[in-house]
Structures are given as C-alpha cells and as structure tokens.
Design a protein around this nucleic acid. Structure first.
Lengths: 353, 353
DNA sequence: CTGAAAGCGCTAACAT
DNA sequence: ATGTTAGCGCTTTCAG
C-alpha cells in the first residue's frame, strides 16, 4: 500500500499536453516497456504491477498515439470505401454495415465520394494509398487499368469491387445477380399476363445496367416474347427525372406498354411521378416492378413489387472477403460473387395478397 | 545530361516494398533533406536539383508516409463527423459537403454513426480522440457533460455541434432556425384559412423537436388560435410509420384537423401514406406542410410545401467555423448560429401557382 | 519479470 | 545550396 504511493514520484501532469507512454512510465515509476506490457496484456508482467499501472492509465485516461503505433507497426488498421455518394440508400446502408463490421475488428473506415467522376475516384484512391489503408472497397466509375496506370501501388493493395464489374478477372467482385433478379421480375409480370413490357434501365456501359437489361431480354425470350427496342430506355442512374421523362415518352407511343420494369428505385420513383401526372393508376392501368426497394418504400402507394433488399448480404460478404485478403487468409483465386435476391410482392402488379 | 545519369547510383527498387524518402535520396544521390525540400517546394534549393529529384519522385510514384508525417508534425489533418446515420438525406448531404470542404484543405473526414445511441456516440468520440483528430462535428445524442465525463480531453478539442443544441453555452452550434421555420409554415397554413392545424413532431427532449413545436405554437398564438394539445403528436424522427400512425389517429378524432404540420420529411412521408390509405386527397381534403424536403421530393404527388433546403449553408458554415477553431482563428466567444430558411411552395396547400 | 535502446519515416534545427 | 542529426510515440529485440 505504502509501496504503491511511493512509486509516484514526479509531477502529476505537465500541462494540458497529451499523455504519452513516457508520462505514464514517469508517473508510475516503471519503465516505458513495463507500461506497454501492462497495456497490451503481455504475459510477462506481474499482476500487481499491471494493476498499478492500469490505474494510472485510467486516471489520466491515456490512449496510445495512433500515428506512432501505425508508423511502428506498419499497420494503419484503416480501410477505404469509395462510392459515388451516400445519400443514395444503397451505398449509404452498405457503408454503415461495412463500417460496423470493421469497427468490431478495431479498423476504421475512410469514406470517399466520387460523384461518378473518374477524377474524383482517382483522387480518392490516391489519398487512401497515401494513408496506407490496408484495403479498399470500391463501387467503380473507372477501370482497373485507369487506376493502376496512375497508382501502380494499387496492384498490391487488397481490393474488393462492388456494384459494377469490369473486364478484369484478377479482382474480387461482390455484385447483385442482376440477370437473375431482372429475370424474376419480368417473369412475374408475364405471369400476370403482360407481354408488352417496357424497360427503363441505367447506362449499359456499366455492368449493372447492361446485365439488368440482359436479364430483362432473356426473361422475355424465355416466354417467347420478342424484344421491342422502342420500349427500352437507358437513362442515368439516380435520376428521378430521367425515369420520369422516359416513362412519359413510353406512355405517349401509340402501342404503349402495359407494364414497366424499372432497373432501380430512383427510376421507379420517376415512374410513379409520371403515372400520377398522366392520371394512370397502378396497377389498374399499368403494372410496375422495380429492381430494388427505395428507402421510402413504406411511404409509397401502392407499395411497389421489387426485389428483396440485399444490402446486408453484399456488405457482410464484401467486408469478410476484404478482411480475409488483408489478413492473408484469402482464397487463392479471385472470386466473383453474385448475390441472388427474391421477389418481395407489393401492390403494383395487381397481385392478390 | 550525363550529369543527371551519373547521379543514379544504386539499385532502382528493392522489391515491392514501399518507397520512402530515404529510397528517393539513395536513388537520386542527394540527401534525404534535399529530397524533402524538393517535395515541399522549399526556397533553399537549386531549381535543377529539384527537377531531378521530382522526376524520380514521379517515376517511383513516391508519396509520403502519412503516419510518420502526422507523428512528426503532431498534426493528423483529420476531422471527425459523428451523426446518427447517413442514409438519412440530411446528414448524408451535410457530410458530403463537409468532406469536400475539408478535402480541399487536405483534411480527411472520418465519419462515425451513432444510430441514436449514446454508447455508440461515446465509442465514436473515443475512437476519434485516439486518432488525434483535430476537430469534431457532432449531431449529438448525449450531452456535453456525458461526453467530457468519460472523455476529458474532449474539452480541448475543437468542436462544432449541429442539428441539436444542449444547455451549455460554451460551445459552437450551427442549427436550423427551428422556431422561425415552423412559424413560416404555420403562417402559410393560416393564410389559406386553416385554423385547426395538427402537429406531428419529434422528441421534445431534443432541441430540434422542442423548438419546432414551439414555433408551431407561437405561430398559432400570433393569429389568436389556441393550441389544442389533442392534435399534437410527438413520435421518433426518422420513423415513417410513426408519422403514418400519428396521422391515422389524428384523422380519426371527431373534430379532425383540416391541416397538418409535419416537423420533418420522414413524418411527412408517413402522412402521405396515411392519407392515401384513408382516401383523403391532398390538398382538397387536407392541407399539408413539412419542415424539410424529402430527398424524393421530385417523385411526390402532390409536391409538398416545405422549407427550402439549408444543408449546403449548414454544412459550409459548420466547416468554416470548425476550420477556424482548428487553425486558431476562431471568434473569441462561442457562437450559436441559426440558419433561416424560406418557404418553397408546393401543391400540398392548394396554392395557386 | 523488468529495462535499455534501436528504429519505423519524416521534419526541422543546426551545421557546413 | 546542401547535409547531419535528433526526436515525434510507440514496439520490440536483446540483456539483465
């Protein structure tokens, strides 16, 4: 007891300056290394000593300097997450799940926004590389060659690609099963007797847009319905007004469709707006399906039929794969994982539920 | 020319290991400090030398080790952003704007989520403190005392509080002018001849919920309308279904309101759903206003009358204030800034536009 | 079980 | 104009 007190020799706390390991050592009277051992639960330390040290650590609410630790260990315990934006529900939710996954492992997530611009994407990747992040998750705008051209070090960084793939099979992709999903939805519409089904999708240069269109076409083909390109529209993703105008156009044609397949929720919302403007009722006058669910699905009337959310599964899978790559437990071969979804029946197709 | 070549003495690149300043020095034949000077555009360096060095820097795409630099400079060039979530349009947008503001200054933003839990908030703040962030922006769940109780160092960290204030005048707040905004909206409804106006707001323990309710009451009072507590509801923010149920309840009463003031966009969306379920038409059967605009406002029919978006102004102001605090150019006294908005007339109140 | 000392990569004071 | 060196805070051999 007296022993404990005796050891506290020097001044208690210099100023408002940050407490370092050295300070704790000075105050406790032990060496720097003993303190370090106490903090890291090293076996080679007397229980008594540890208790004394930890008490002081607590009292001064010491926490190790992260930069010093990173420098020393050559580990930043940080990953990057690079996406077009986060106000979009999809990337926002996935980001939050990935962050919480890695937070449990004591990793931090640096979130970067590209606004769909390749320059921003390159800047983000560069800044992440400079910070020596241990891995990066990207929903890509550019291509892998464009990246490594400017940032060769990226080749040696654990990477996981989501949302869109590119023509490089050396990478790990975690994606929607776009074709399967689109097929399910078209199938559903055909099941309701529709044969003239329009499609509003995103840019076909992106795999997600291309594959959803492909799924739509295959879905029709399986039922012997020929594709009419005049009722297929591609507009920007995340553009409610694109979906709106496309829908108005589609409905103006003399041989107008009886149903519309929207390849994402933004486009669907534009569709809802358009049908309202046209005084067309869903599902009585037109049937509607959406590839994914808008965040505000609970507020929509009628509730749209869409694929079940897969954000959780995509995020968890992506986090797990990236974590394995970081710790070196990765599968030998790069993987392309396709997350299948299921139909979530709503009221937009006149289903009796 | 020959001169240039001569100086490249040693092996080009050891392995795939990271290039350091020392490597560049070795390769270029100059000292470590000369290289550093070249990189930092220091005046004390020969233009020729600089050019040579920079060429090698480019070639090996060297970038400085961030941890080492932070350790040395005692500056992390990082700020924290702590909010309930980012799928919510409000915090997501503000986060993106703040990030881009600080990115321009070569700062990074660490985004943390609290999910409205005090424990998560404390964890987030702790992890940011451990990383020695230079400043933190928080949309708070807990109170300043609860924070500093566990994290005394927080008292010395530049802080900016958004969205909700607490009873501590020593801090900088950047907030909606909630009372003013609510007042404007109620005014608008009264102007349309409504006198029985319901209110659906968020938790009154939070200043935002409390103040919007206050603005509503003052608005009514100014017109000599007495407040009927039976048509005031408080539910959780971000709860479409709360807004939905509250609206259903309100409309069931025998003396039902002719208009509803929704204190945020989530609640409004619940209202839209409820009115649809009740087959009530907006604005013919009921008039509706919302404090803020939902992200999907373009998809809503009728377009709701709501306050103009102020995310940009809040975000810019917050970023500027925090930046000043970090660099020591802060105003002497803590500030409480109130951002006023204006009415954005929609179609939900039967305005002739 | 404990301590001394080197070094991670970078910067800045202090030479030269 | 250029080079030498100490040290930021931490971890980790290697001695005791």
């Amino acid at each position: 007891m007296a022993q404990t007190m005796v050891r506290e020799v020097r001044k208690e706390q210099s100023e408002d300056s940050v407490i370092t390991l050295k300070d704790i050592a000075r105050i406790s009277g032990y060496s720097i290394k003993t303190v370090s051992r106490a903090i890291h639960d090293h076996p080679d330390i007397n229980e008594q000593t540890k208790k004394q040290v930890m008490e002081i650590v607590e009292r001064y609410s010491y926490s190790p300097n992260w930069a010093a630790r990173s420098l020393r260990n050559q580990k930043t315990h940080t990953i990057g997450y690079v996406v077009p934006n986060i106000t979009n529900g999809f990337f926002g939710e996935i980001g939050m799940i990935i962050d919480s996954y890695f937070r449990r492992l004591n990793y931090s997530t640096l979130i970067c926004f590209t606004s769909h611009s390749l320059d921003n994407e390159l800047d983000s990747l560069r800044s992440l590389m400079e910070k020596n992040v241990e891995g990066i998750i990207v929903a890509p705008v550019g291509s892998f060659e464009q990246w490594t051209d400017k940032l060769p070090k990226l080749r040696e960084t654990p990477l996981a690609i989501i949302d869109n793939r590119f023509n490089d099979t050396s990478l790990d992709y975690i994606l929607h099963d776009n074709e399967h999903g689109a097929d399910l939805l078209v199938d559903h519409l055909v099941g309701h007797g529709h044969s003239r089904i329009a499609c509003v999708t995103g840019p076909v240069q992106e795999s997600s847009g291309f594959e959803r269109l492909l799924g739509y076409k295959h879905g029709l083909a399986r039922h012997g319905i020929s594709v009419d390109e005049s009722i297929v529209r591609t507009v920007e993703w995340e553009d409610i007004n694109g979906g709106y105008s496309a829908t108005l156009e589609l409905m103006e044609s003399h041989n107008k469709p009886s149903a519309v397949f929207y390849a994402n929720s933004q486009l669907l919302l534009g569709g809802y707006k358009a049908f309202h403007a046209l005084s067309m009722r869903i599902p009585q006058d037109v049937a509607v399906v959406s590839f994914d669910q808008p965040l505000v699905i609970d507020a929509l009337t009628p509730r749209p039929t869409a694929l079940e959310k897969v954000e959780k599964e995509i995020a968890d899978t992506t986090a797990r794969i990236l974590h394995h790559k970081i710790t070196g437990n990765a599968a030998k071969a790069p993987q392309e994982i396709r997350i299948k979804s299921t139909l979530a029946i709503g009221e937009s197709c006149d289903c009796k539920i």
